[in-house]
Design a protein around this nucleic acid. Sequence first.
DNA 1: GCAGATCTACTCGGATAGGTGGTGTCCGAGTGCCTTGGG
DNA 2: CCCAAGGCACTCGGACACCACCTATCCGAGTAGATCTGC
Lengths: 155, 155
Amino acid sequence: MKLPTSTEWVLHCAASLAQLQSGDTASAAQLAAYYDLPAPYLAKQLQALTKAGVLAASTGPRGGFRLARPAAEITLLQIVEAVDGPARPYECREIRQQGRGALPREDCQDTCVLARKMADAHDAWRRSLAGVSLADILDEIPADAPARTRRILMG
Amino acid sequence: MKLPTSTEWVLHCAASLAQLQSGDTASAAQLAAYYDLPAPYLAKQLQALTKAGVLAASTGPRGGFRLARPAAEITLLQIVEAVDGPARPYECREIRQQGRGALPREDCQDTCVLARKMADAHDAWRRSLAGVSLADILDEIPADAPARTRRILMG
DNA sequence: GCAGATCTACTCGGATAGGTGGTGTCCGAGTGCCTTGGG
DNA sequence: CCCAAGGCACTCGGACACCACCTATCCGAGTAGATCTGC
């Protein structure tokens, strides 16, 4: 079970975008330079965030990415699932219905216990991430960090 | 973020082994036939469980796998991490220390906020799985299931 | 009948190929800004 | 001086190779049991 490396990239990029002033944007190239990342691949991931409705993109000069909604309304879960997909890590393929020990269909009306427990764990993970917004992240960084970020990122 | 397909296999196999009577064993071939799985690859995964101390293996005729400890002392987390490895899905590579916006080392004494939140979510997932033992699973299946499992699996 | 050695068949254990999804890269379509010419 | 049209440079968006990990498989080492022989 491994999250894509780009997960860290988009989390930090989203946090940086949350530090911009309303109306400002940052291009994929600027963000890539800010964190020393491969620009084209980072752009691909930011596209995914745009499709998911987390970021908004504008083309042309002075264009780039910005948050699609207030930082308080964007959770870490939305960012992570935008790049990793909404698929559950544990996929029940109903092997209990195969082989010599196959159970009759009537005994498989409800989802199997193991799948339920795995789903419970995944829900706990999702709830934990859904409980943290970008605004919460900004609350935990030094007060003078946003100004520095803006200066270096867009300068 | 995807768990190996074999996760479902070993979870069901462990649950089946938990239904055996003390002293009995089931071979990889028997378990594979019971669920219609590729026997050699399943054996490889059961080896991983043995290395992790979840199962105990005995060779020779009448040999096979059995639980290494009472079912109440084996959690789903131990089984899952035995096949998937103990690595955390989110790996912080400290990109905040790279690129134009690199933070000075003195500001990176403590782990970055995002890595901490991702670790919190992973801990919630692990706690959820650690709270379910094989004994809990057996409590939720019909009372006559173990006898059927033994008959078909070892017969 | 019994004990010992042998022999066999069955088990696990590790080393070896192939397929799918993430990683990294490229070029094309579209748009806002700037320049430039005219009124 | 003001305005409008054109050109341009910059942006995102999608399509194309490469590599690592999971999937799948094979054969060899070791052992418990059964067999056979001799006493």
